[in-house]
Design a protein around this nucleic acid. Structure first.
Lengths: 357, 357
DNA sequence: CTGAAAGCGCTTACAG
DNA sequence: CTGAAAGCGCTTACAG
């Protein structure tokens, strides 16, 4: 062997101008077809071919262009996820609202990784005009879409699902789209029974979430049915309309107290955020929780157990919710068929805000 | 006019087989070039042309393919974000670790939306072999990359940045890549002074984060310097090595207590997670916080203010951190240049775990 | 096993 | 203002 190290023939600095498979082919002295095969593990390239290609890829720092692959393959290996971002953040704890959606997104991500997919996140502002336009843009960049709750009307969802596979995370399925959700019914039922039967409370109120949310509607419906069945007095009406936010929950209580309305013995909230606001407002006005009024939530966001008192709530399997949404979508993308409506079980988390302990 | 509604000529059900710009062109009776111009607002198409195209798009439910656009344009309008996902979740509160990264990602997302970009999320497992391979895959699907802390060695970052624009969110910049970070120095300095000067504590310990984290190294360095400058006794050594997790922090305390080691008057933790674990472990062993030992964190995750006692910590502007990372990357993508190292200011959040109040 | 060539669905000069 | 055509960077039958 010569004493000087074998000079790299042709080795050029990875120029800023995009490097293509042609550059690799030239450097390796093979055709672009061979480069592609080596890179994708297709066919059975000769060992020497493989090596030369790999070395060229390494020397040049080549990364295949995803857009070109997608175009050629008909598969982007990307799922789009669309959700609303709350614009208003008046309550300090509102940051928490991040959690619910983010945890689900984590679940999606984990499941996606298993299949070599990545997750394309796109939030839309609450007051965003042109919602459909923004969603269409995401649809174009992905193989399928996962829509969080309350993103689109059932009609628009049906329409969208004619263009691209869609999974919704919502209270109820829409025609055309697949759906994954938690067992709202079982959750509220367990909660109301715990309050009415175990604790023997005889008056109950329900602070609603956004009225256009299927989840909220389902919860409200079951709340009424169960409470009625238990022979409990229900406090209701538009004074009890919240909006899933802590501020919304606090406002309901503040207004009620202001007009010296009587409070029920226990308040069931549409979600944990709302419960958080309700508890704050109660405490601020000297109403003891749970001694005077018990409060419960729904979701079991991480902060729930840190509240004073720790919040009794219904745990949704959020990671699993996300993972399942991806799996359903994936099976639809790859096999063409998938379940249309998946319901995941929930779990009652009894802590202290209901009066236990 | 005839009495029956004008029949839609040619209108077919949006077939599952992909709809292309050719279908739209046919339906509208124009060329694909015109369709493209109308869709992208290029040139000045005649009003009638525009209308026919829009109608065809609407009738067919056409969504342009993002991969094809990207290939043709040389712009995907996608930024990739890569981060580690903790595999182990022993501590119940560990879910919180979601927050730090997720909040930053939200910031990225918001800034991206402003430019019509979407965010491609890709988490990698802690023990994931083939980290570079996974990252390369994301790089191929995006116009640029944002890397969370501790994703890659400085050398690998430099190498990667030769292939695609890279912004790191790290304790210190790497050659080739741009970097955005918080002012660790100012944060720790404020904290140590508060403890040593305002409270007059004479012994301090620092529970470290992962030793390969630039953020951690920066914080440890400043801690030492400031503590020394204040004439305070420092408790250190490998007994004080945490790993950014609550469990890690708890273990440090448990081990220390087990060997009956003396504890310092105040413990500065590398991050809030660690502080959370430290406080749990202290409480479990009957050590009062802050009466016997004060504890501080770093980050100000939302749960920090809900701990008992509320955690004194350093707030990083996480949303802004993310937004800035995107902006820097975007300006690099579109103009070719951008700042190489951006440092964002922090804020000392004095609550009660330090002994105040 | 390997290479030449067509094709994926767009955008954009270039003529008209 | 509009259309025909080239080209973006890959993958994959199809021949050899």
């Amino acid at each position: 062997m010569a004493q000087s190290p074998k000079p790299k023939k042709n080795s050029k600095v990875p120029s800023k101008s995009t490097l293509t498979i042609y550059d690799v082919a030239t450097q390796a002295g093979v055709s672009i077809a061979s480069v592609s095969r080596v890179l994708n593990g297709q066919g059975s390239p000769r060992a020497s071919t493989r090596e030369r290609v790999m070395q060229a890829v390494d020397e040049l720092g080549f990364v295949p262009d995803g857009a070109a692959r997608a175009l050629s393959n008909g598969l982007k290996e990307v799922v789009g996820v669309v959700f609303r971002r709350g614009d208003e953040t008046r309550f300090e704890d509102e940051d928490e609202s991040l959690l619910f959606i983010d945890v689900i997104n984590r679940g999606i991500d984990v499941a996606a990784q298993r299949r070599g997919f990545d997750v394309l996140i796109s939030s839309v502002g609450f007051s965003d005009e042109n919602m459909s336009g923004r969603i269409a843009a995401v649809a174009g960049k992905a193989d399928g879409l996962i829509l969080h709750d309350r993103m689109l009307s059932p009609n628009n969802i049906t329409r969208l699902s004619g263009m691209v596979p869609v999974v919704t995370l919502a209270g109820s399925p829409s025609r055309g789209a697949m759906n994954v959700r938690c067992d709202n019914e079982a959750g509220i039922r367990a909660l109301v029974r715990h309050l009415a039967v175990d604790h023997g409370y005889t008056t109950l109120g329900y602070v609603a979430g956004r009225s256009d949310s299927p989840d909220n509607r389902a919860r409200a419906r079951v709340f009424e049915a169960e409470a009625r069945a238990a022979g409990v007095e229900i406090f209701e009406g538009q004074d009890w309309q919240g909006d899933y936010s802590a501020a919304g929950g606090a406002n309901v209580i503040a207004a009620l107290l202001e007009k010296h309305a009587e409070l029920p013995r226990a308040i069931v909230c549409a979600n944990d955020q709302t419960a958080l606001g309700v508890m704050h407002a109660l405490a601020r006005n000297g109403v003891k929780v749970p001694e005077t009024v018990a409060v419960t939530g729904f979701d079991d966001v991480p902060v729930a157990r840190h509240l004073h008192p720790p919040l009794t709530t219904v745990r949704q399997p959020m990671l699993e919710l996300g993972a399942t949404a991806f799996d359903v979508l994936y099976s639809r993308i790859s096999t063409g068929k998938a379940d249309a409506d998946v319901v995941l079980p929930i779990q009652l988390m009894v802590r202290q805000s209901c009066g236990c302990r």
